[in-house]
Write a protein that binds this DNA or RNA. Structure first.
Lengths: 204, 204
DNA sequence: ATATTGACTTTAGTTTTCAAAAATTCAAAA
DNA sequence: TTTTGAATTTTTGAAAACTAAAGTCAATAT
């Protein structure tokens, strides 16, 4: 790995820390530069603008998450376990990098096209990975699904609903506590159990 | 019904039309008054303030919706049919009075306590009615549920997720089209089918 | 006494301005 | 080719000025 790449990654990591903690709006390029003792202009040498940097961080985090899930998939095992594990990963990531997901949480309009694009892609990747896990259950003849893509989307939207539903209930929408995350996770798992049960082969 | 009540209802109806069309923010008390050829001060004779009027309208609409669903419940029949019918009603109401639900849709913080209160109550009533329908399935030994309230909430959150998930996909979040509503309804029904299937008795 | 109003006051929301902060560029140096 | 300090442009946010809408009330009509 060349020296250039090393710096690029250092920037990515410092940016990740800042963005995850304070979000896009409350992080400045100067701060990231200062964290690294780089000049601000150097950041612009590696990343054309702040949006690109943010996008890169976002993708980086999603990549890591997807990778972790892929590992579990490759390890094999019961598809329901894999699915449960995958939502553990999702919630863990969202918890850990909470403010990176602020735009996904709140319903913000008028995002820069570039970010819009990145979010859409990450959504598609999430759908894909759910499809992949469902596919395992289908191949094992444990579940039956007629429209794989649609089913995956319904599942993802439902998980999303647990998040929103709970966060809406409380004042403190700014930063959910550990307990709130646990509650979301718990509801998501219960929902998932019922949902997968509803797809089981025998009962059609 | 006294003359006073008649005027109160006239105000409620005019306000419903305005709020449903333009939402709370883009409706003024003067406009409602003008629609009726009443003076603005008269509105304040019947309703202490704008929030109260809005709340009254909101409750009025929810009441009507719940009533419709109750009618279907009382008519009896298969619990799954009733459930499907109830989401038809929900989507129909949201479609018809869309801007009345703007606060329920968007994730607005800092609402006046009074509205907060009314929304919370309407949420509780929605949960209640879902519980009631599930109960029919339980009593008919078609489904098995261990925590009725939690299950109802999970179901409601999931339905909510369909709405959000789809609306997020498109630019035009301001006012969904007929097609978009139909799509939401379709996904909600598919989701519901799988979910209820997942609760069926035999497979535990 | 109850219902109704026009005119008035208060409040909330919008627009404007402007300085500070942050993003972005660039010519020069390492 | 990488790095920077300084310059430039853009964005943001607070304060002031303004406007529209909410809300009040004393007087009037029924």
């Amino acid at each position: 790995m060349g020296n250039a790449d090393v710096k690029r990654i250092k920037i990515l990591e410092a940016a990740t820390r800042r963005f995850a903690h304070f979000g896009m709006a409350k992080t400045t390029m100067s701060e990231i530069a200062k964290d690294l003792n780089f000049s601000k202009a150097l950041l612009y040498y590696y990343f054309p603008d702040k949006n690109s940097l943010y996008s890169a961080v976002f993708e980086y985090v999603i990549d890591k998450m997807i990778e972790e899930i892929e590992t579990v998939i490759d390890k094999g095992g019961n598809f329901e376990e894999i699915m449960m594990y995958s939502i553990d990963m999702r919630v863990k990531a969202i918890n850990q990098y909470y403010n990176l997901f602020e735009y996904t949480m709140k319903m913000v309009k008028e995002l820069p096209d570039e970010l819009e694009q990145v979010f859409k892609e990450s959504y598609l990747r999430e759908v894909e990975i759910i499809e992949k896990i469902l596919k395992i259950g289908i191949d094992a003849q444990e579940i039956q699904v007629d429209d794989l893509n649609e089913t995956a989307r319904i599942l993802l939207y439902s998980l999303f609903g647990m998040r929103m539903g709970i966060l809406k209930d409380m004042k403190n929408m700014l930063f959910p506590t550990k307990e709130e995350f646990d509650h979301i996770l718990s509801l998501q798992k219960k929902m998932m159990k019922i949902f997968l049960n509803g797809l089981r082969y025998q009962q059609r």
